[in-house]
Amino acid sequence: MRHSKESGGLCAGRVVAVTGAGRGLGRAHALAFAAEGAKIVVNDLGVGLDGTPAPDSPAAQVAQEIRSLGGDAVAHGGDVATERGAASLVATAVTTFGRLDTLVNNAGFLRDRMLVNLDEDDWDAVMRVHLKGHFLPLKHAAVHWRAETKAGRTPVARVVNTSSGAGLLGSVGQGNYSAAKAGILGLTLVAAAELGRYGVQVNAIAPAARTRMTEAAFATTMAAPADGGFDAMAPENVSPLVVWLGSGAPSDGVSGRVFETEGGRITVMDGWRAGPGIDKGQRWTPAQAGRAARELLTRAEPPGPVYGAS
Rank of each mutant, 00 (worst) to 15 (best):
S4G: 08
K5R: 15
E6Q: 14
E6G: 13
E6N: 15
G9Y: 05
A12N: 12
V18T: 05
A21N: 06
A21K: 04
G24C: 07
A30D: 11
A35R: 15
E36V: 10
K39V: 03
V47T: 14
G48A: 07
D50K: 09
D50V: 06
G51S: 04
A54I: 04
A54R: 05
D56Q: 05
A60N: 04
Q61L: 06
Q61D: 12
E65I: 02
R67H: 09
D79P: 06
R84W: 03
G85H: 01
A87Q: 13
V90K: 00
T92E: 08
T95L: 09
L100S: 09
T102W: 04
L103K: 09
V104K: 07
A107L: 08
F109E: 04
F109Q: 03
R113Q: 07
V129T: 10
K132I: 13
G133T: 12
H140P: 01
A141P: 02
R146K: 07
A157F: 01
S163P: 08
S163W: 00
A166F: 10
L168C: 03
K181S: 02
K181A: 04
A182R: 01
G183Q: 04
L187T: 11
G196N: 07
V202E: 10
A204K: 12
A208K: 09
A208N: 11
A209F: 03
T211S: 06
T214F: 00
A216H: 12
A217Q: 11
A217K: 11
F218E: 12
A219V: 00
A219S: 14
T221R: 10
V238Y: 02
L241S: 06
L245F: 02
G263H: 13
G263V: 08
R265Q: 14
I266R: 14
D270T: 13
G271S: 11
G275H: 13
P276R: 04
I278A: 10
I278Q: 14
P286E: 09
A300I: 04
A300S: 13
E301G: 11
P302Q: 09
P305S: 13
G308T: 07
